[in-house]
């Protein structure tokens, strides 16, 4: 019957609820009003057109990095390198967007493609090392993050500019930003990227669920040896999964480079978009649709929480704890499943 579906919907809802309760207890314990706190959170995320725009703006790269991690995960790979792939994608998009001139219909897709290719390339290296030499992808991807961070900083300072801290702005013809959207959201940085992110989610779903390639990828994810025995080329599939995963993360970089910022600053530390993508993917059950929902939840929490210190007086350190608790409860939905089941058993 509908038992499984019912359960799948019920569990995340209860988890979010419990997370909010736990956060409320913490706020109470520290002497702050949790109701005011949560109202400030909602206000900060959807209070007016500007904040709604900013929230959706924040969700966009989360969807893409979530998809990146989820995609690799479905093929049995743990892509910790989404962070680095975001950074190289960002740089590639800005580079193409600022250094060449072309009509928008060529320029914009080219800049976006450059980001995907750069991200894909950053995924290819750990992929090929894993496939050929069996080096664990977690180690390589972590290292690739640092290479990306410092390499892009170096390129920005020494190649793209002369010892400046930010690149030039991308040209109008490569920008995802639109005056029309900015006007209706009172100058938020919302841009067309959301459509790309949603399209990417559909592509991932289609690729994984409806094509032979996707079947092979999932098969390799479930059981490498059985897949090999069945005549699939495991190595090829590992590389492919990492490249596509990196491509998604690279696109997230393009969202920042061509949409939100329109340039790339040197980064003194990681953007965390890629790392948050890991949590988003796990929260979304590594499925395309689930990842989109999880990205929305993440984006709302992150954006709204910025409002809590000024509007409700909750110190930002405490806000971080509250947000972390909410995510913790959502992620540990297993506990809730178990609680529901034993509750039911006692009722017997």
């Amino acid at each position: 019957m509908f038992s499984n579906r019912m359960f799948n919907i019920l569990v995340p809802i209860i988890s979010v609820f419990l997370g909010l309760v736990a956060g409320a207890i913490i706020m109470l314990g520290f002497g702050y009003n949790p109701i005011r706190g949560y109202i400030a959170l909602i206000d900060g995320a959807f209070g007016n057109a500007y904040f709604t725009g900013e929230t959706i703006r924040r969700v966009t790269p989360y969807i893409l990095t979530g998809l990146a991690v989820a995609f690799a995960f479905r093929a049995g790979l743990f892509n910790i390198g989404a962070e680095g792939q975001v950074i190289v994608g960002w740089l590639a998009a800005v580079w193409v967007g600022s250094s060449m001139e072309a009509p928008m219909i060529i320029h914009l897709p080219l800049a976006i493609l450059a980001a995907a290719v750069a991200g894909g390339l950053w995924g290819f290296v750990p992929g090929i090392l894993k496939a050929k030499l069996g080096v664990h992808e977690v180690i390589i991807t972590i290292m690739m993050n640092y290479i990306a961070l410092f390499l892009t900083n170096h390129l920005i300072r020494n190649v793209l500019t002369e010892t400046k801290d930010t690149t030039d702005r991308v040209l109008e013809s490569a920008s995802l930003a639109s005056n029309w959207i900015m006007e209706i959201t009172s100058f938020s940085r919302l841009h067309w990227g959301l459509l790309i992110a949603l399209a990417a989610a559909v592509i991932m779903w289609f690729l994984l669920e409806k094509t032979t390639t996707g079947y092979e990828l999932r098969s390799v994810g479930y059981n490498r040896h059985a897949s090999e025995y069945a005549g699939m080329k495991v190595g090829k599939n590992i590389v492919l999964a990492m490249v596509i995963s990196g491509g998604f993360a690279g696109l997230a970089g393009a969202m920042e480079g061509l949409g939100t910022f329109g340039y790339m600053p040197t980064h003194s530390s990681f953007t965390n978009i890629g790392f948050d993508g890991i949590a988003v993917a796990l929260l979304g059950g590594n499925a395309a649709f689930g990842t989109v929902i999880a990205a929305f939840l993440f984006g709302v929490l992150k954006e709204g929480s910025l409002n809590m210190p000024t509007e409700a007086g909750v110190p930002s350190e405490l806000v971080e704890i509250v947000i972390a608790l909410i995510i913790f409860f959502v992620a540990s939905s297993y506990i809730i499943r178990w609680a529901l089941l034993s509750l039911k058993k006692e009722g017997k």
């Binding site: 900013e54 924040r58 940085r189 600053p265 953007t271 954006e303 910025l306 210190p309 000024t310 930002s316």
Partner: peptide, 25 residues
């Protein structure tokens, strides 16, 4: 808090929303 206050930024992406938040308040 009433006459003077501060807002912290945890990443580069927070600067604009934080500034705008103060403008709107």
């Amino acid at each position: 808090k009433e006459n003077f206050d501060y807002v912290q930024s945890s990443s580069d992406a927070d600067y604009s929303p934080n500034l705008n938040r103060l403008v709107q308040q």
